[in-house]
């Protein structure tokens, strides 16, 4: 009888509740790998170091892993480029991994403007056929390419070689001028 009563009284929520599940959810625990305190859901079991892919600054980020899945991210301290700092895009670099609008396959724009998912083979075949078509009709100088500061030097060299010697393209520009230079000029005003 007293057992049933105890069970019943256990169902009544306490008048004052300082340490329940909601408090626990945000409780911080010491992290390994020199990462400092972190909530349980983003504590690292292992760390993968990566370079942020958003711009060409090259900040180093520690990706916190649980069961080989990324759960959180902190900028790497001690790394000479960013000294433990990141911009908001860097802090949110994991958000793109499971973003519903992430580009995971080539999209071919059809006549009506709608984009259709196609295989890499079809995408490349179409790209090559149309580029060649334009050059055949208007001459090799009729197209240009815009490169990115986010690719490695070797890749940049390869892009230049492919475009100039392989495709006969004469004109190129890059976001170092389109984006970075304008931003630098604007911030120095």
């Amino acid at each position: 009888m007293s057992g049933a009563l105890a069970k019943f009284t256990a169902l009544i929520p306490p008048l004052v509740d300082r340490h329940g599940p909601l408090t626990e959810e945000l409780l911080l625990a010491p992290g390994k790998f020199g990462l400092g305190l972190a909530p349980a859901k983003s504590t690292a079991e292992a760390v993968a170091r990566t370079v942020c892919g958003f711009c060409s600054t090259g900040c180093c980020l520690n990706v916190h892993l649980q069961d080989d899945e990324p759960v959180a991210l902190t900028p790497a301290s001690g790394y000479p480029v960013n000294l433990g700092m990141a911009c908001p895009k860097g802090w949110e670099a994991l958000a793109v991994l499971d973003a519903p609008d992430r580009a995971v396959t080539p999209l071919l724009r059809e006549r009506g403007g709608a984009q259709r998912a196609v295989s890499w083979d079809e995408a490349l075949q179409t790209f090559v056929a149309r580029m060649k078509g334009i050059q055949a009709e208007h001459g090799p100088e009729s197209i240009a390419f815009l490169s990115s500061g986010q690719i490695a030097t070797e890749e940049m060299a390869f892009l230049g070689a492919l475009a100039k010697f392989g495709m006969g393209i004469r004109h190129c520009d890059s976001n170092t001028r389109q984006c970075m230079a304008t931003a630098a000029t604007a911030s120095s005003v």
Partner: peptide, 11 residues
């Protein structure tokens, strides 16, 4: 960065 760091580091 303070807004995003607070968001991440506090879960």
């Amino acid at each position: 960065a303070c807004v995003t760091a607070c968001h991440t580091l506090n879960g």
